[in-house]
Design a protein around this nucleic acid. Structure first.
Length: 859
RNA sequence: GCGGGUGUGGCGGAAUGGUAGACGCACCGGACUUAAAAUCCGUUGGGACAUAGUCCUGUGGGGGUUCGAGUCCCCCCACCCGCACCA
């Protein structure tokens, strides 16, 4: 090496070397039932869907989890850190249709690619536990669990609506419905009722709500979202008599949380799927047309609630039990059949949606809520949906809303027209999917015996491989022989269930399976009871509700059926933000990949054509917008440690991170700088530890130990960006020429050795390389313990305190630590004498080690 | 639409109600070099003035509480996540 050439860290050699060394030592493999006596720590990141290649979101997710795993291992825990594949799902079927491959080959090929990429990241994973949910060994155990749930009353079969493509004769996922039309056929979707399987998650509504209180290490916002999703409310069922019966129905029951506003009724509205709506449509082509229009909205709640409010006046009327008056019955597209009773009473005064509807159809808007009896508005421009005083409401007039509710319910009960009920927004979990690439539902349908469980000795029910995707619909249904089997009960010809499970089931118990992935039963009780709950779960905020709620429910159901012995699967949860990037479009409006764009002083240009490029918004990385950066390319160019360091350093993990070229270059520079620093210190004379430290040496040791304390705390609290900042600070203090003072030499060695340990969770390869350079033959960092901060070096004896006058900074003073008012005030006064000139001190505030504030007025 | 979140220099961000801008990036200046890259050292929120300094201003917008507000309260705006068949 010449003097002018700068030493570079050879990550391309070092990273595979250390990965092989870790693997050879089996450092990251855990036992199903450990005997080490160390405390256990189960770290889990949400497992990936094998879509093709890993993306930056994966890099971030698995780096965050790996930091925790490595930190806990170094801190003396027995760590379980497994990895697997959430491998069933729609994209594999789409690929099969487009590329004439089969879903299994496509999926397993993707897994092989992605496994290789994850291994290159240097994650401390126990690969011996790997499985994919599409392995029959996994989904066969899942079928056993389902049958146990069924035997224990947790499963029901009932009719439910799906999005139906009338051209392709296929059930569509919500994602496949674009503006009310099938994504491939373009045909307006219809709703179709099918007999489907449900898991009775509503049996656990209250328990799932209560359980949130026992999750102190979950983000508050996630608990709040789950609470609102479960949606407990206290209200009343109110029955309205129809003036004239229709289709044999003579009354409508509504659920309301606002019985106090019943006198403010303007209309009654029912969902398009309500039995009365169907009865009306029998004899009215207009009503039938309206129902068809509503069916084309799609089934998603967002689509329903964002659609323009539309209604159809049925001509029917009902009588309000409290005031005896009659009101029209409308069918309305914003009333949800799945919530409450599928019918509402419309009170424009107390509900914004009702107000909008009444205004649109010129229905009356009676005023029944006011800020006070003296301030009753003449006319409303919007609903008064908060607390207030009830007015114009007979016996309820003058009561505050909170008191009017029980009063109204009492009267309804006396009249036999209603009762208090509690309601949940949570609905039972529909788990049937009319698709091939999922876990077969282990059921046989017999004309005589009804649905029968597949007998235990015939499990697993394996997906047939010889299926075709040459026409729309479910290949399992089209298969010539697979579904034809004898009834297990009467042996008559019967058919298999051709629906498969919702893939959310696959991800609702995989964390339990990881504890004994090869067990012959769904779980090994000894292993699962040792390792669960997951101590730290890490994943995207987009899973805050569905996946996490389903997993919490599934764990309760598995507890009931004896597969686990706890009900909360995740003791600690961390939700990370997304990885974003600028997006680019050329002059024709086509999306461009970042590598196709070059930034020049005149603006962004196409790297080949030189044409100007529009720099668009910073958005979540997605294939469709081409604003992706391939982690494999980044690791080739800079190494895994640089990629890991960058995703950790740039911002707090719960926020979105923007991937920038300059950011990754900066991280890479630090990797090389730190390596050079380590080589420099390794070459310095090795000094014996002095009796005591003074001056620069003492200051450096204080910084080193403060850094240990700060980084440890940052890793404990998931503020990894702060850990990075503190490490930058310490390494910055080691810059400059090598000293000759023995104390300082010793302190520098201590500092660099500390850095090797502190960076190990984040940049494990570089940590090993540095440690090997400064302490040859001392084993790997990965098996060395985490450093401890010496409390003697954490205290300070002098503090800079700010001095304010009327809350404005006017100076600072250096005071002994803990100095109280008697010491601080005279010094502070002197420091800001100029600002106090000609002023009368009205008040003196002194917070030791923090602030002195003089409140003054002109003398 | 409903539920949840976020908003601080050119950029990412830091800050138990107590000196706003730690740390990094970028930029600028300097050293080294024939030169460039790399590396090393240093400056940098904006503004004004009498420029070794002093003052004003500044945390999405508007109000409020407080000796003191990025932080607490109320109203508003923008963006992001979720909405039950995407994973």
């Amino acid at each position: 090496m010449s003097d002018t050439e700068t030493t570079r860290y050879d990550f391309a050699t070092a990273e595979p070397h250390w990965q092989a060394a870790w693997e050879a030592a089996a450092l990251f493999n855990a036992a199903d039932t450990p005997t080490s006596g160390k405390p256990k720590y189960y770290v889990l990141e949400m497992f990936p869907y094998p879509s093709g290649k890993i993306h930056m979101g994966h890099v971030r997710n698995y780096t965050l989890g790996d930091v925790v795993a490595r930190y806990k291992r170094a801190s003396g825990f027995d760590v379980l850190h497994p990895m697997g594949w959430d491998a069933f799902g729609l994209p594999a079927e789409n690929a099969a249709r487009q590329r004439k491959t089969d879903p299994a080959s496509w999926t397993y090929a993707n897994i092989a690619t992605m496994r290789g990429e994850l291994k290159r990241m240097g994650l401390s994973l126990d690969w011996s536990r790997e499985f994919a949910t599409c392995d029959p060994e996994y989904y066969g155990q899942q079928q056993k669990i389902f049958l146990d749930f069924w035997a224990n009353g947790l499963v029901e079969r009932r009719m439910s609506a799906v999005n139906w493509d009338p051209v392709d004769h296929t059930v569509l996922a919500n994602e496949q419905v674009i503006d009310g039309r099938g994504w491939l056929s373009g045909a307006p979707v219809e709703k179709k009722n099918l007999s489907q399987w449900f898991l009775k998650i509503t049996d656990y509504a209250e328990d799932l709500l209560e359980g949130l209180k026992d999750l102190p290490r979950w983000p508050e916002r996630v608990k709040l979202m789950q609470e609102n999703w479960i949606g407990h409310s206290q209200g009343a069922d109110v029955t309205f008599a129809l003036t004239a019966p229709v289709g044999g129905i003579d009354s409508v029951t509504v659920y309301t949380t606002r019985p106090d506003t019943l006198f403010g009724m303007s209309f009654l509205a029912i969902a398009p799927e309500h039995p009365i709506a169907k009865a009306v449509a029998q004899s009215s082509t207009q009503a039938a047309a309206f129902l068809a229009e509503c069916a084309a909205q799609g089934t998603s709640e967002a689509a329903i609630e964002q659609a323009e409010k539309k209604g159809f006046d049925t001509g029917l009327t009902v009588q309000n039990p409290l005031n005896g008056q009659t009101y029209p019955v409308w069918i309305a597209n914003f009333v949800l059949m799945d919530y409450g009773t599928g019918a509402i009473f419309g009170c424009p005064c107390g509900d914004e949606r009702d107000f909008e509807f009444a205004a649109k159809y010129s229905l009356p808007i009676p005023i029944v809520v006011a800020p006070s009896l003296e301030a009753i508005p003449e006319q409303l421009t919007k609903a008064l949906d908060g607390e207030g005083i009830i007015v114009n409401s007979g016996f309820l007039t003058g009561l505050p809303t909170a008191q009017a509710k029980p009063a109204a319910i009492a009267e309804l009960e006396r009249l036999g027209a209603g009762k208090a009920v509690q309601n949940w927004r949570l609905r039972d979990w529909g788990i049937s999917r009319q698709r091939y690439w999922g876990c077969p539902i282990p059921v046989i349908h017999c004309a005589a015996c009804g649905p029968q469980p597949v007998p235990a000795d015939q499990l697993p029910v394996i997906l047939p491989k010889d299926v075709t995707f040459d026409r729309p619909g479910n290949p399992l249904d089209h298969h010539p022989s697979w579904k034809h089997v004898p009834c297990p009960k009467c042996s008559a010809p019967a058919t298999r269930e051709t629906d498969t499970f919702d893939t959310f089931i696959d991800s609702s118990w995989y964390f339990a399976r990881f504890t004994a992935p090869h067990a012959a039963s769904p779980t090994n009780l000894e292993a699962v009871n040792h390792w669960l709950p997951v101590d730290q779960y890490v994943g995207g905020i987009e899973h805050a509700i569905l996946h996490l709620l389903y997993a919490r429910f599934f764990t309760r159901a598995m507890q009931k059926t004896g597969h686990v012995s706890l009900k909360e699967p995740f003791a600690g949860l961390f939700t990370q933000g997304m990885v974003t990037h600028e997006s680019y479009k050329d002059s024709n409006g086509n999306w461009l990949y970042p590598e196709e764009v070059v930034k020049t002083p005149e603006g962004a240009k196409h790297v080949e054509t030189g044409e100007p490029v529009t720099v668009g918004r910073i958005e979540k990385m997605s294939k469709s917008k081409r604003n992706t950066v391939d982690p494999g390319v980044i690791i080739d160019r800079f190494g895994a440690d640089t990629a890991r360091w960058f995703v950790l350093s740039d911002n707090p993990p719960e926020r979105d991170v923007e991937w920038t070229e300059s950011g990754i270059l900066g991280a890479n520079r630090f990797v090389h700088r730190l390596y050079r620093l380590a080589l420099t210190i390794a070459a310095e004379p090795r000094a014996a530890q002095p009796e005591s430290f003074t001056g620069e040496a003492k200051k450096l040791r204080q910084l080193t130990h403060r850094t240990i304390a700060a980084v440890s705390e940052a890793l404990d609290t998931f503020t990894f960006n702060l850990a990075v900042a503190r490490i930058y600070e310490l390494s910055g203090a080691l810059a400059g020429a090598s000293p000759t003072d023995p104390g300082l030499l010793w302190a520098r060695f201590e500092a660099i050795e500390t850095i090797a340990h502190l960076i190990a969770p984040m940049m494990p390869h570089l940590a090993e390389e540095i440690f090997a350079a400064i302490r040859p033959n001392s084993g790997m960092v990965a098996i060395n313990p985490w450093p401890k901060a010496d409390p003697a070096y954490l205290t300070v004896d002098e503090v800079t305190v700010a001095v304010q006058v009327n809350g404005k900074l006017r100076g600072t003073v250096l005071l002994p630590a803990g100095a109280k008012a008697d010491v601080a005030l005279p010094i502070a006064k002197q420091a800001v004498a100029g600002a106090l000139l000609g002023q009368l001190i009205v008040k003196e505030i002194c917070v030791p080690d923090r602030i002195v504030n003089f409140v003054v007025k002109p003398a």
